[in-house]
Design a protein around this nucleic acid. Structure first.
Lengths: 132, 132
DNA sequence: CTTGACCTTTACGTTAACGTCAAGCAAAGT
DNA sequence: ACTTTGCTTGACGTTAACGTAAAGGTCAAG
């Protein structure tokens, strides 16, 4: 509750995830909050890490990949160059997938639009029948 | 092998999926190819359905959702309007997620770019050291 | 006839990312 | 003192979408 610290449930509410998830990320080595007695205390840096984790997840990365990604932000690990190139690749692959998804959505959207129109037409002709 | 038919392995190669997946989709009721003896024969319509299945998957839809989606293309099912609206919703949600992903990728990309630059700088200063 | 290339069904195994109890400590309100 | 509220660990359960044998049918080539 002191300055710039968070409890686990505060974070869970802020990011709309369960406390179970946060503890799971810790189990997997992605977070390591301080302990006050047996309670976890999260600082701004932990919160930032959590943010990065969630962003990674939104990008479809597995937790293990997110973990490696977090290493890139860590100045203590030195063999960054290879990892970095690997991730740039990963991001580029994701960009390609996104491009495909956008195309898929465009197609599907237009198909849904025409189908929707068919439904509207059908409904209106039903109405004229019931009104007759 | 006759005109406009495909074997399971032909389709699996064409779409780079396993035969197991194709049979699984059939198990789930998404495909129902003809049988010639005990072998499956796929026609153009089946191939199209498979294409739609894969597109749905790329969009992150579960197979059950893809199944419902395929019903929309089926003229025999009549209560389309509600399903249709549901899917339009689903697509819109996906569009929002995509928007977020694009944002995430932009952020991550620029971070990777600066990190990459750091690496390049580090490498070049190493080189000047080894060359000295 | 046998080998090899495909095809088949059945069924148990796998993986990730949690969900869901269970059982209990600890502080704070009433 | 009691209850509520929030936190803890531990461990088993869950789900989707297949993977992976196992065990065998079929058909053309050698």
């Amino acid at each position: 509750m002191s300055a710039n610290t968070y409890t686990i449930s505060q974070l869970s509410k802020e990011f709309s995830i369960t406390t179970r998830s946060i503890r799971f990320y810790e189990d997997q080595g992605l977070l390591s909050p301080l302990r006050e007695g047996q309670k976890r205390i999260y600082f701004a840096q932990d919160r930032t890490r959590l943010k990065l984790i969630l962003r990674g997840k939104r990008l479809g990365l597995a937790l293990a990949e997110v973990s490696q990604l977090l290493d890139l932000y860590d100045p203590s690990s030195s063999n960054n160059d290879i990892q970095l190139l690997a991730f740039i690749d990963k991001i580029n692959i994701r960009k390609l997938a996104l491009k495909q998804q956008l195309q898929d959505i465009k197609e599907l959207q237009s198909e849904l639009d025409t189908a929707q129109q068919r439904c509207i037409d059908a409904l209106s002709s039903n109405q004229s029948l019931t009104q007759a």
